[in-house]
Design a protein around this nucleic acid. Structure first.
Length: 333
DNA sequence: TCCCAGGTAGATC
DNA sequence: GATCTACATGGG
């Protein structure tokens, strides 16, 4: 499909998601001649996604038929051969995941209206979109992110998938694993997390898994009280309930989890619960905001958050992401 | 070796 | 209520 205001590399590598692998990168950021291929593990699946200029392709490896009966005469597909994903999967899963239904032209206009100085920054990072990620994975990932760095977060998230997640496919002889489902997460002990080098975050990850299980249990008990038809109609998980809440309520819910503070909660709200007004303030954002809006003075994170809310409002999350890219990449970009 | 990383909880003032 | 610090680990 044709895309605009989209750059696969910028979108995947801006630090919002962690379970993917780069296959190809021709080194160009320009939408007129960029070429990227990535394997993305999300939504319980493996996706092979390719961007060639303004064309985006949702692909998957052709299944190896060698273990199926009655296919002995058919030659196996060459290793690494790809086919298009079914159109309903593209429509129902990947277009929403990459936030491709949204008009980023409008969003950019609104942010530039709020501050002209962001025009060049947005121009440089024109192709960042905010993904709509799986809730549990996003929650666990950003608990892992605290006091760490992006390469290491990716390493840890990947290793949790490899050890406890389901294999979602393979490509060129390599197996790829998705992040564990919620029920699988519940079986991982604090000690297990420690073995995966999560350090002091191990207890937090366990407390998040407890919270998820408790919420899931409460939801199921609620449903038991209703009749079967209604149960089917109203089936919804923790994620859906949080989405129906106000920003403030949902944030307070998340912050009940030991290990989830202001910043992690904001990331989860922004990247997996569609609260695009969330404005996570990490060390990079704190620095750039102090520089741009507080005369270089050290400023409390809560003050920065409130200021951003006033300035960018419902577009805060997008603005935050452009600023984050700029703050992190300047100097060495 | 020292410093820093998409922070948070608990202690202390 | 605002500020200080321990917390594990790995990369630069």
């Amino acid at each position: 499909m044709k895309v605009k205001d989209f750059n696969l590399k910028q979108t995947l590598e801006c630090g919002q998601c962690f379970n993917f692998e780069k296959i190809t990168d021709n080194g160009s950021d320009d939408i007129k001649d960029c070429f990227y291929e990535y394997i993305v593990l999300a939504k319980g699946r493996m996706l092979y996604v390719r961007q060639a200029a303004d064309e985006l392709f949702f692909l998957r490896p052709i299944k190896d038929k060698s273990d199926e009966k009655c296919s002995c005469e058919l030659p196996d597909p060459a290793d690494g051969e790809l086919e298009s994903c079914p159109s309903d999967e593209i429509r129902n899963i990947w277009i929403p995941y990459f936030d491709l239904e949204r008009d980023y032209g409008l969003i950019k206009e609104k942010i530039i209206q709020a501050d002209e100085r962001l025009k060049d920054i947005i121009g440089q990072y024109y192709g960042v979109r905010i993904l709509n990620q799986d809730f549990a994975e996003c929650l666990m990932s950003f608990i892992i992110s605290q006091n760490s760095n992006i390469p290491r977060i990716r390493k840890t998230v990947g290793s949790i998938g490899r050890k406890y997640g389901r294999q979602a496919g393979s490509y060129k002889g390599k197996d790829y694993y998705v992040f564990p489902e919620e029920d699988q997460l519940d079986k991982i002990s604090e000690e297990d997390y420690r073995e995966l080098k999560t350090g002091f975050r191990a207890a937090y990850l366990r407390s998040a898994a407890d919270w998820l299980a408790k919420k899931r249990g409460a939801e199921e008990r609620q449903l038991q009280k209703r009749d079967a038809d209604e149960r089917l109609a109203k089936k919804r998980g923790t994620e859906e309930r949080l989405k129906e809440m106000s920003f403030t309520e949902a944030k307070a819910e998340l912050m009940q989890i030991k290990g989830v503070g202001d910043k992690v909660a904001d990331c989860v709200l922004l990247f997996s619960l569609a609260f695009r007004n969330a404005f996570p303030v990490d060390v990079w954002i704190k620095r750039i905001m102090e520089e741009m809006y507080f005369d270089g003075e050290l400023t409390d994170k809560k003050v920065i958050e409130a200021y951003a809310d006033g300035k960018f409002g419902e577009y805060g999350g997008y603005a935050q992401q452009y600023l984050f890219m700029y703050a992190r990449n300047r100097g060495n970009a």
